[in-house]
Amino acid sequence: MARVSAELIAAFRKTIIKLKNNAPYQWGHMGACNCGNLAQEITQLSKAEIHQYAMEKHGDWNDQLVDYCPTSGYPMDLMISKMLDAGLTLDELKHLERLSDPKILAHIPVEKRLHLKKNNKEDVILYLETWTLILENEWVKQFDKNLMDFDEKNISSKVFA
């Protein structure tokens, strides 16, 4: 699962809000598709810039993720690197474009899960909302663990043992 951070969760939330408020969505457009919309929030690039960078190489998001090389110097690879730095993985991005991550799908009711379409904005929103809830739950678990570790370190009988 993604490396959880407040910034990553915020990027997801902003992407969801924009999509719900009629942000451009077009699955065949590298800057306005599933990954493209999230990339806009993480990289602060416009859909046009993302699409322009993507056209310097061949293929859709999945192809470019397979061909990703962090040292190529291609703007698309630099953009993917920024998304990875934000906490995402290559596999998660591949799954996002196809709405296919089993860990996320497991949290979507079967009747909806069986009818998800990778190029349907409402389905993308559902997928992103579900993923965001998973990330937020993970964030809370990490926070709770950190608090428990802090409590353990501050128990005087253990500190002075």
Results as ranks from 00 to 15, higher is better:
135 L>I: 06
12 F>Q: 10
68 Y>M: 02
92 E>G: 13
91 D>G: 02
70 P>E: 13
139 W>G: 00
134 I>D: 12
161 A>R: 09
114 L>F: 02
139 W>R: 15
12 F>G: 06
13 R>F: 01
53 Y>W: 13
31 G>Q: 05
62 N>Q: 12
23 A>V: 00
133 L>K: 10
47 K>V: 01
153 K>T: 03
112 K>Q: 14
20 K>D: 01
65 L>I: 11
6 A>E: 14
135 L>W: 03
83 M>E: 01
29 H>D: 15
104 I>L: 05
90 L>N: 04
130 T>W: 03
28 G>T: 13
11 A>M: 02
40 Q>S: 10
71 T>V: 09
26 Q>T: 07
74 Y>E: 12
103 K>Y: 08
100 S>H: 03
120 N>S: 10
80 I>E: 08
35 C>R: 08
128 L>V: 06
5 S>G: 15
64 Q>R: 15
10 A>G: 00
22 N>H: 14
78 L>Y: 07
30 M>W: 10
128 L>G: 06
53 Y>D: 13
107 H>S: 11
117 K>W: 02
93 L>H: 02
12 F>Y: 15
83 M>Y: 02
134 I>N: 07
153 K>G: 05
18 K>N: 11
44 Q>A: 13
123 D>H: 15
125 I>S: 11
82 K>R: 15
6 A>I: 12
81 S>M: 04
17 I>N: 05
120 N>Y: 13
159 V>A: 08
110 V>L: 13
61 W>M: 04
138 E>Y: 03
29 H>Y: 15
65 L>H: 02
49 E>S: 14
156 S>G: 00
27 W>H: 15
64 Q>C: 04
17 I>G: 00
160 F>E: 10
18 K>W: 01
41 E>M: 14
90 L>P: 00
41 E>F: 02
103 K>L: 13
21 N>H: 07
68 Y>L: 04
116 L>V: 06
115 H>R: 12
48 A>I: 07
137 N>F: 03
